[in-house]
Design a protein around this nucleic acid. Structure first.
Lengths: 342, 342
DNA sequence: CTGAAAGCGCTTACAG
DNA sequence: CTGAAAGCGCTTACAG
């Protein structure tokens, strides 16, 4: 490992008896070189275990083959992990790297925008699921590279943005519950990461709007500490107002333990109470949770594809897109109860 | 965006009235330049929004600041996502990139080892949670870069490897169940990803060994399709042999839906049946699952740190390490039942 | 402590 | 179709 030196194009050129220009061309633009030459080069390259140096190419072309992803959470959870997998999948095929920059504390975030380590070293930046301040957007613009957003609450200043529409999903939930006959739904809302400056959150907002749009539909909200059992937190809301017949939980990761606790406490879901989640995440299917399906992997893929187009200066069509969202009715929802809950 | 050109060291040097060597030094080795000079450089750099080009540096130094991670699954699941987050965390601090190469199909995997896109373009390679063939290891050696493993079943040919010991975890489970008084445990084993050439899997193997070591402990195994409900699959094993009083599930992701189904089917866990999982993954805590805790994030961090040392040619101490594993006793385990299950 | 200069390994006009 | 040559933006021995 000590004195090992990788072969370069000059080694290949020598062995193949051609110029380095021909070597370069057979890799970057094969049809521009005669087949015979190409074969000589390929053979020599194979024999020497030659491999292009991306650093040299990057330097010459000014293309870094790197895209930055700004995310808010460090211990990456379900949604972000899928987004990353989707992006990484499309980038790998074109030999691009994804450089992940976690903004998991105020100081890290401040440092990032202070240093802007991305300047000069990235072909685009993608922001996932949090809001940028105007100042931050301006700084990102100063790196002169396409800026794309995934589930960003406001899209001004972005060259492209994709969303899974919370508005549509919530609207479907509310309409579906109304159709089943529910007239009073409790929204369970976890205290959010303070760094996620999405305020008021789209889901909650559109839940309230959707209920409002239906004159007969009453909405209540219960804010809950995600670290503590949700069941206990909402139990008294439920006893205090017996007109609540359905619970709409902000996200599956809260709904699933809740369901479990309800079952353990002998509450019959959905006979006594309907429960709907949001995300269609791990276990939702196995457990039979009615929820809204979205596809963060697809979001990542789409964002990555469009980013690549932007880098290529290609036309990308619409500058803001929504990916479909789907209500998945399973076993936790039904008609409102006819007898009392407790 | 069109004609924008980033400033280079020569711009900074001019503005600061020094040579580019001094500019370079103030960034790479600040104490080698006089404070006054350094300040001039820093000021000029700031004014021009200068940022080092990593491509140029990489080319000159031969250090790519890139580490490859080989993983087997594309739709990245809980464990791998945490490993990645752990690695990415330590790499970000030293401005290294993580290039993820998914080996999610035979052809992708074959292509990777055929092309070896990593040659000449990576400072190390890390392999997570699958077995390499001898041939593959040999090819990776030919890239002349440190090779490190995370939870790899065999560590020959690796410069370093970290594990969360399945053997220890399983041993704790079996001893704990024995202590509670169980004498016959059913191991629930999912059909594994055929690409994960870990055969026979450590967990199952050490479960059987641990039971064997206790002369009075009987072990049974039920192979299960992870796509279908586990409860139905094991129900008849349970009725057919009433001496089974505990179920040891290969991983939490199987155990959690199983528990849910048991509860729904009126089985009282642990009064009628003890259930233990493995992983301490999402929801295990909220749901009260007895399981073995391991820390893939820590595994990733440790692997990354050691990889960096290897790259630096530093001494790394032991070449194979195990990270602690912990039995977390919660509410799904107890004494064997005294009345029949069904 | 500082500068002039070579060179890392490519790509790509340009000329033939 | 092919080659000679310039140059991308740094780092670093070398000399002073």
């Amino acid at each position: 490992m000590a004195a090992f030196v990788n072969p370069t194009m000059v080694d290949v050129a020598k062995r193949a008896g051609v110029s380095i220009a021909s070597v370069s061309r057979t890799f970057s633009n094969p049809q521009s070189v005669r087949e015979q030459t190409r074969n000589k080069v390929l053979a020599a390259a194979q024999e020497l275990h030659f491999s292009l140096s991306r650093a040299a190419g990057n330097l010459k072309t000014g293309i870094s083959q790197r895209i930055a992803l700004l995310v808010v959470n460090e211990q990456i959870e379900w949604f972000t992990a899928s987004v990353i997998a989707g992006i990484a999948h499309v980038l790998r095929d074109v030999d691009y790297d994804l450089a992940i920059y976690p903004m998991d504390s105020r100081s890290r975030r401040a440092d990032f925008f202070e240093q802007l380590p991305v300047r000069n070293n990235v072909d685009a930046v993608i922001v996932s699921s949090f809001a940028l301040s105007d100042d931050e957007i301006e700084k990102l613009h100063s790196v002169h590279v396409p800026l794309v957003g995934i589930n960003v609450p406001v899209t001004d200043g972005f060259d492209y943005a994709v969303h899974a529409s919370d508005a549509k999903g919530m609207n479907m939930i509310v309409k579906y519950l109304a159709m089943l006959g529910h007239r009073h739904v409790l929204y369970v809302f976890p205290d959010l990461d303070p760094l996620r400056v999405d305020d008021p959150p789209e889901r909650l907002r559109t839940f309230l709007e959707s209920c409002n749009a239906l004159s007969y539909m009453q909405a209540s909200v219960k804010v809950v500490d995600p670290q503590r059992p949700t069941f206990e937190a909402i139990a008294n809301a439920l006893v205090n107002d017996s007109s609540i017949t359905a619970v709409c939980v902000h996200q599956d990761s809260l709904a699933i333990p809740l369901l479990f606790d309800m079952q353990a406490n002998g509450i019959d879901v959905p006979a006594q109470l309907s429960v709907v989640g949001y995300d269609d995440s791990t276990y939702a299917q196995q457990i039979g949770l009615t929820t809204v399906h979205q596809d963060p992997y697809a979001l990542g893929e789409r964002a990555a594809r469009q980013t690549l187009r932007l880098i290529q200066q290609e036309h990308i069509g619409a500058t803001v897109e929504q990916l479909p969202v789907e209500l998945i009715v399973r076993q936790t929802t039904g008609a409102p109860r006819t007898v009392s809950l407790f």
